[in-house]
């Protein structure tokens, strides 16, 4: 089946990009295959596991469910962009120090979820953190050390989270 290609433009990790492609292709495939954002992990292909989480206009979305056409004109941040930010780096370092990482496959998505949570709520409670990452499945850690690591990131970041 031949599909007409459209020019789609969006901001990816702070830089304007464009691609001519079938607008119905999944955003996850475009990010991974065309833009090399391999930190966007495919775990379930149905928006259930959160491993592919990215930020679209500042909100957490799962690009396995989004046709790339819907990204036109939007602002997209993947783990590749987040890790370069001061906030992202605080989370990555806190995850490493707090024992949050085991197999690691869910972790880029967890970092995105934590970034979103802390950006809106710089001092979350235990319950708020658990709710904040409840869309991200981890099979290894039982979540406790991820929760602790997010607390550590909140503490380390302090005022930075309020910017």
């Amino acid at each position: 089946m031949e599909c007409k290609e459209y020019k789609i433009e969006f901001t990816l990790n702070g830089k304007p990009v464009s691609i001519a492609t079938n607008p119905l292709r999944r955003l996850i495939d475009v990010l991974r295959d065309d833009f090399g954002c391999l930190g966007v992990k495919e775990g379930c292909s149905e928006g259930e596991c959160g491993a592919c989480s990215i930020l679209m206009n500042g909100r957490v979305v799962t690009p396995c469910l989004i046709p790339v056409g819907a990204a036109n004109g939007q602002d997209i941040m993947t783990i590749e962009g987040i890790k370069e930010t001061e906030k992202g780096s605080i989370i990555v370092q806190a995850f490493a120090d707090g024992g949050a990482v085991q197999c690691g496959f869910c972790i880029p998505g967890m970092v995105i979820a934590a970034y979103y949570l802390l950006s809106r709520n710089p001092n979350p409670t235990e319950d708020e953190i658990r709710l904040g990452i409840s869309g991200n499945i981890c099979r290894c850690t039982g979540y406790d050390l991820i929760v602790e690591s997010i607390k550590l990131a909140a503490k380390r970041g302090g005022e930075i989270w309020k910017r």
């Binding site: 930190g39 690691g104 972790i107």
Partner: peptide, 21 residues
């Protein structure tokens, strides 16, 4: 005494290659 896992940062940053990558 705990040490930082050697693979923790690269996995958190999404730079580790799994088979699909």
């Amino acid at each position: 005494k705990a040490v930082r896992r050697l693979d923790a940062v690269s996995k958190s940053e999404g730079s580790v290659k799994y088979i699909a990558d």
